[in-house]
Nucleic acid binder design. Sequence first.
DNA 1: GTTTATCCTACTAAATCTATAGGAATTACG
DNA 2: CGTAATTCCTATAGATTTAGTAGGATAAAC
Lengths: 138, 138
Amino acid sequence: MLSRKTKYGLKALSYLAREGGEKPVQISVISEAENISQKFLESILLSLRKTGFLGSKKGKGGGYYLLKNPEEIPIAAVYRILEGPIAMVPCVSLNFYEKCDDCPDEHQCSVHRLMVQVRDNTLSILENTTLRDFVAEN
Amino acid sequence: MLSRKTKYGLKALSYLAREGGEKPVQISVISEAENISQKFLESILLSLRKTGFLGSKKGKGGGYYLLKNPEEIPIAAVYRILEGPIAMVPCVSLNFYEKCDDCPDEHQCSVHRLMVQVRDNTLSILENTTLRDFVAEN
DNA sequence: GTTTATCCTACTAAATCTATAGGAATTACG
DNA sequence: CGTAATTCCTATAGATTTAGTAGGATAAAC
């Protein structure tokens, strides 16, 4: 299940992408447009800024803006920042790998093999979809 | 992320499928073989029994056994019992649908459309994989 | 009637999620 | 300059979920 954090983050980025990126957009504007708690959104945008997806400007007329073109931002990258691993089990994750404590050999684990398949499929969708697709659809 | 509950449940079912189903297998045997806390596994098997996947027998020589052939048990069905929705957002779930409180119209939501894609892909894997595949792989 | 097993309910500790609070820092503008 | 508008940052808190644990009831085998 997707956390609200990730969902809100994607919606906010989507909003910024649709906006075109001419001027910074204030948190309050996005939070109203997308029905997101302003304070919560604030912390989400902050972490997207710290990881290089967003730029910001303080003070009057300030706000957030995209640092890259929408087509350069795959959903997978955003997902990994806000949600974490895309894989359903850590032992199958490419970016957040962890060994399972219950499996002596993960190559003999049927769950492992199944989840590799699921990961590959999900990944191909999330890597090949960018913010640009979010804009184009509307 | 897959909960341990679901992972353990799948491993236990997988164990039973490999066993062939002649005789009931005790919780303690499965829990040792698969490195799962016995008490925790107990509650998992119980809920799989209540939902018609497993039969059980009490007393000496008792234990759990599959009620159907492995090829008749798709992973998707087990997943829904133990984990819940396969979809990443409730508004995209076939079996556990819920409207998002933040979306006025889900058909105009880019996250929704993306997650429909992800769901369809994951679903086709989980519906077309059965316990039989878990056995065959070894 | 003793042993072996599942059955069932309730509880708990820890982690995670979803925020909220409150002020500091920065910028625009008159 | 001074004031208003905005992001920046840290800390905290309440709710929910997860991953078990405890302890006895029930049933079957022998």
